[in-house]
């Protein structure tokens, strides 16, 4: 009798263990390496303060009084580096993140990847897409598809759109579409001459060291300092370049050269 009670009890316990363990979700990838998570916040500042949308509050280095209407851009191929030179590219299913000041959810990037624990020295990413990854029609859904850069201009996608307005020399409020993407050279008849120009560039963030702890999420804030697009090394004057620059490679070149210190980590 005692024996059979013992047998029933052990059977129950055994099956109970089996039941709980079998229902447990297996981790994707099965990696047992200690790891944490990474979360990026994106913020947009002008002259050291959060941008106030649609307010003619700002004056750029050229002396143009201006306002910001919306900011939309792609961050791609984000890589984190360790002191020993090893690195990891954030995949997050894909290898891009779209940021849009009109869509609050895009201002947060919760990286899907598990990040091995340790101290990391720095972060770098691509502004826009490298040419090989800037493929027309790769986004069929909004809002990314609304960033298309049309075929006559080289195809692919806008790296960034900053739409805004400035007060021109007549004190009239004029719109500007500060749009960056592939550039074109034109022949004397105005026809584009291939190949198109890759204006995307790599951004290395100074002071972007951070630590990943096991099972914890590390938050990093990436700030765009909007005024710097118009500041250095080139003074960008809206009165000179006008409202649209998609087909104006000299203007795009000048603007992208200014991109080197636009982003910072806070």
């Amino acid at each position: 009798m005692k024996k059979s009670v013992y047998f029933v009890l052990t059977t129950f316990i055994g099956l109970g263990i089996l039941l709980f363990s079998s229902c447990e979700k297996k981790p994707v990838g099965g990696s047992q390496e200690p790891a944490g998570k990474l979360k990026f916040n994106f913020e947009h500042y002008v002259d050291g303060s959060p941008v106030v949308i649609n307010a003619m509050n700002y004056t750029n280095a050229a002396g143009n009084q201006y306002l910001i209407y919306e900011v939309q851009y792609f961050v791609t191929d984000l890589v984190i580096y360790k002191h020993d030179g090893s690195s990891k590219m954030i995949k997050d299913w894909t290898d891009y993140h779209y940021v849009d000041t009109n869509i609050p959810s895009t201002l947060l990037w919760e990286v899907y990847d598990s990040i091995p624990i340790g101290t990391y020295d720095s972060i770098a990413f691509h502004f826009g897409f490298t040419d090989s990854k800037n493929i027309s029609d790769m986004f069929s859904y909004i809002p990314e598809s609304n960033m298309l850069w049309t075929e006559p201009d080289g195809g692919g996608y806008h790296y960034m759109k900053i739409n805004g307005k400035w007060l021109d020399t007549n004190n009239s409020t004029r719109g500007f579409a500060f749009h960056l993407g592939r550039g074109q050279h034109y022949d004397t008849s105005g026809h584009p001459i291939p190949p198109y120009i890759d204006n995307s560039f790599r951004v290395s963030l100074p002071g972007s060291d951070f630590t990943i702890d096991d099972g914890k999420t590390t938050e990093i804030t990436i700030r765009m300092n909007i005024e710097k697009w118009f500041k250095e090394p080139n003074i960008y004057d809206h009165n000179q370049w006008g409202g649209d620059i998609m087909e104006n490679q000299p203007a795009i070149k000048l603007a992208t050269e200014n991109g080197w210190n636009v982003f910072s980590v806070n």
């Binding site: 598809s145 298309l148 006559p152 201009d153 649209d244 998609m246 087909e247």
Partner: peptide, 28 residues
């Protein structure tokens, strides 16, 4: 099409899409 999809042309595409957005609207 070139006029439709260029800024220096008619610049329709920013609001109304292009072959890469065949809904022909941003719905904005």
């Amino acid at each position: 099409l070139v006029l439709f999809t260029t800024e220096a042309g008619a610049d329709c595409f920013h609001c109304h899409g292009a072959p890469g957005n065949p809904l022909m609207t941003t719905n904005l």
